[in-house]
């Protein structure tokens, strides 16, 4: 009996140690960004396509104020409320971050001090970003005005407040595989804009019980994580809009009935309006190719 107990205890220790090792944050290699010089102008495109301002600008900010990334947006979810932090180039934000720090945050969900971020930061999408785009984005973000607003803590209860456990979540769900095929340059660009930057799927695709995207129901609509209403399906089978309709919606906010975008999509349109017509057309082409 004592021997059995000892064996069980030993196994438990091994399992715990294994879990600890498996759940460790996995940052990029130290030299991952070597030789990559950031271009702020190209970074602006990455910034708008990535939709950073939608969460990181102060709620209610309009126009130029959307470039002050003071944070404060509350994202409600079944796991608690996540509050977007200050990511402006100030001591309260990301002043002093290296390109590698930003690359680890966006593509690995790992902070400069080596902790896991919650996937409220959509690194499940950004994992597919090129590191050149990260460098360009960082160069652009460094040009933005600083804000000295302090970041607020997330309101997430037990057990979801154990960040280490996110390592196991990442092990299961974080990868940089493409979801959809793309066989033309336009579809490839559209796929990059949607699957690597725009993170359309983060809202428009349903999630499993652990909060990971169900890629077998890609863009087929989902319950609103705030608990109210439903986020519409935008795959070709469910959305009757033409590619021109989609591109024009992203440019102007007008639906084919000349209603206008509201809620979170009004924010998305504000970002997408900064892209080139070609990029918006590429997104539309990609959307139309999702069955």
């Amino acid at each position: 009996m004592r021997k059995l107990l000892a064996t069980l205890t030993g196994l438990a220790v091994i399992a715990a140690a294994g879990g600890w090792i498996l759940s460790a944050p996995k940052p990029l290699p130290q030299d991952a960004m070597a030789g990559l010089a950031g271009d702020a102008e190209r970074g602006a495109t990455v910034f708008w396509a990535g939709g950073c301002a939608a969460c990181h600008a102060a709620p209610g900010a309009e126009g130029e104020a959307r470039l002050v990334l003071a944070g404060g947006y509350r994202m409600e979810s079944p796991f608690g409320a996540f509050v977007a932090p200050n990511i402006s180039p100030s001591p309260q934000g990301i002043a002093g971050w290296s390109d590698l720090d930003l690359a680890n945050a966006l593509t690995r969900g790992v902070s400069p001090s080596g902790r896991h971020y919650y996937p409220a930061l959509p690194y499940g999408t950004y994992a597919r970003m090129t590191l050149q785009d990260v460098a360009d984005l960082k160069a652009f973000m460094d040009t933005l005005p600083p804000s000295d607003v302090a970041s607020k803590p997330h309101e997430v209860g037990f057990p979801f407040n154990i960040r280490r456990a996110l390592g196991l979540w990442k092990l299961l769900f974080l990868n940089d595989d493409w979801v959809r095929p793309a066989d033309t340059p336009e579809l490839e660009r559209g796929r990059y804009l949607v699957e690597a930057l725009g993170h359309c799927a983060e809202c428009h695709t349903p999630r499993n019980a652990l909060g990971a995207l169900d890629t077998t129901r890609w863009l087929q609509g989902a319950p609103n994580p705030s608990g109210k209403g439903k986020i519409p399906a935008i795959n070709a089978a469910n959305l009757s809009w033409s590619a021109e309709d989609i591109a024009y919606y992203l440019e102007s906010g007008f639906t084919p009935d000349y209603d206008s975008a509201g809620g979170e999509m009004a924010q998305v349109v504000k970002n997408m309006a900064h892209l080139t017509p070609e990029d918006r057309a590429a997104i539309a082409a990609y959307i139309k190719a999702v069955p």
Binding site: G229, E251, S252, G253
Partner: peptide, 21 residues
């Protein structure tokens, strides 16, 4: 000139209109 009109529509709907679906 359509862009600013779309923005003006959206600016109000974003804050003051309930989601329809």
């Amino acid at each position: 000139a359509m862009g600013p009109v779309g923005k003006a529509c959206g600016a109000c709907h974003e804050l003051y209109r309930a989601k329809s679906n």
